[in-house]
């Protein structure tokens, strides 16, 4: 089947690509565009390692058909830091050791940023339920939750 031509915006940059109708956005990000920061842990929307935002809404890129993103805005982990300046969540994750192997980290960070944009003052329970779609097998989630709460507090006091 002929490939489809898609024009979209990724991390603020106008982007064009060709894809098969059956290809997922995750596949295109990783294997066509070289944006391998989004990870494939399952391909079925269960682990959250491929989390991106689509027009600001958190979603698993493995569940989005690449052909559907034309005209929409995508943000991935590669767009989270501004140049050399890490997003406060990224910095806090490093300071508080909220990652071990790091494979879930891009997805967790994307999800946590989406949470804080929606709710700058989440409770521990709200953080835990918001991140329930992001599997982490290394940390037991403790330091991840603490890092998100701590970042939220710092971002509030800076605002």
């Amino acid at each position: 089947m002929a490939k489809l031509h898609v024009t979209t915006t990724i991390n603020g940059e106008p982007t064009e690509f060709l894809c098969d109708p059956s290809q997922s956005m995750l596949d295109v990000l990783r294997n066509t565009l070289g944006l391998t920061g989004s990870k494939e842990g399952c391909g079925t929307g269960d682990c959250g390692a491929c989390s991106i935002t689509l027009d600001g809404r958190l979603t698993c890129s493995c569940l989005v058909l690449a052909a559907e993103v034309g005209g929409h805005e995508i943000n991935t982990i590669e767009g989270m830091a501004q140049g050399d300046e890490l997003h406060p969540l990224q910095q806090k994750f490093l300071e508080m050791a909220a990652l071990q192997c790091g494979i879930c980290t891009p997805g967790v960070l994307m999800a946590a940023r989406a949470l804080l944009e929606k709710n700058p003052d989440p409770t521990e329970t709200e953080v835990r339920f918001w991140l329930a779609g992001n599997l982490c097998r290394c940390t037991g989630y403790d330091k991840i939750v603490r890092a998100v709460l701590e970042t939220a507090a710092e971002m509030r006091s800076a605002a």
Partner: peptide, 23 residues
């Protein structure tokens, strides 16, 4: 001391190269 890990910046920015990331 709770220093920042040497591989940290790559891992929070999506740059770290895992198994499936090589071509």
């Amino acid at each position: 001391k709770r220093t920042i890990r040497p591989d940290g910046a790559d891992k929070v920015t999506g740059r770290a190269g895992y198994s499936a990331d090589h071509s």
